[in-house]
């Protein structure tokens, strides 16, 4: 059978590799969201930095060896929120877009340490039950094809909406790249927002 898939921290595997002690970090379920990573003592000695982030309304504590690790990889690898995508790593495609204090930002170049004390919202936290108007419009207009860019696209749209923009105003702010070429349906969906 399939190996159990879970949210994990890369350092856990490494901790096992190095014989370090794990102290029960596992995010992904509400009851332990605020649980500390619990940095292994030896890991502390190897210059890990502990950061606490507010992601989708919950505090998440992570340990990084490089405080400039972009938020994208902290979200994906350390916290386990994989809805935010890696596309280019150089702020050209927008697949990694998240909201930071309500503002669309490219998490692929956003220093995680700069996100401390701010509210980070990812696609997973945009709404309960896929109920954000943009998400509903995307479904109604059957927008996604491969879908890989759409997390970022929707977060950009949500950011524009949160700023009070509508319709064509939003379109002007959707600079995300879609290789599938879903733009026509995006335009149709956004025209309803």
């Amino acid at each position: 059978m399939a190996a159990k898939m879970l949210v994990d921290c890369g350092y856990l595997a490494m901790a096992r590799v190095w014989g370090l002690t794990r102290r029960g970090y596992r995010s992904g379920s509400k009851d332990n969201r605020t649980q500390s990573l619990g940095i292994p003592a030896k890991a502390k000695e190897s210059n890990l930095t502990t950061l606490t982030l507010n992601v989708n309304g919950a505090n998440r504590t992570v340990s990084v060896s490089d405080p400039s690790m972009p938020l994208l990889w902290v979200l994906r690898d350390l916290i386990g929120l994989t809805g935010t995508k890696y596309g280019c790593g150089i702020e050209v495609c927008g697949a990694c877009t998240v909201l930071i204090d309500g503002q669309p930002e490219h998490s692929c170049v956003f220093d995680t340490s700069s996100a401390v004390g701010k509210k980070v919202v990812t696609i997973e936290g945009l709404s309960a039950n896929t109920s954000h108007p943009a998400q509903k419009a995307w479904i109604d207009h059957q927008v996604p094809q491969c879908g890989y860019c759409q997390s970022g696209m929707i977060m950009s749209c949500a950011g524009a909406m949160a700023a009070g923009h509508h319709g064509s105003e939003i379109l002007g702010e959707l600079q995300n790249l879609c290789v599938c070429g879903t733009y026509q349906r995006i335009k149709e969906a956004v025209s309803t927002l």
């Binding site: 190996a3 159990k4 898939m5 879970l6 949210v7 994990d8 856990l12 595997a13 096992r16 994906r76 386990g80 929120l81 994989t82 809805g83 935010t84 995508k85 890696y86 990812t122 696609i123 997973e124 945009l126 709404s127 896929t130 998400q135 995307w138 479904i139 927008v143 996604p144 879908g147 890989y148 759409q150 997390s151 929707i154």
Partner: peptide, 16 residues
């Protein structure tokens, strides 16, 4: 594909 739950290859996470 609009709520981040679709799992692409790059999203796979396996214990350890």
């Amino acid at each position: 594909k609009v709520n981040g739950s679709a799992k692409y290859g790059l999203d796979v996470r396996v214990d350890g």
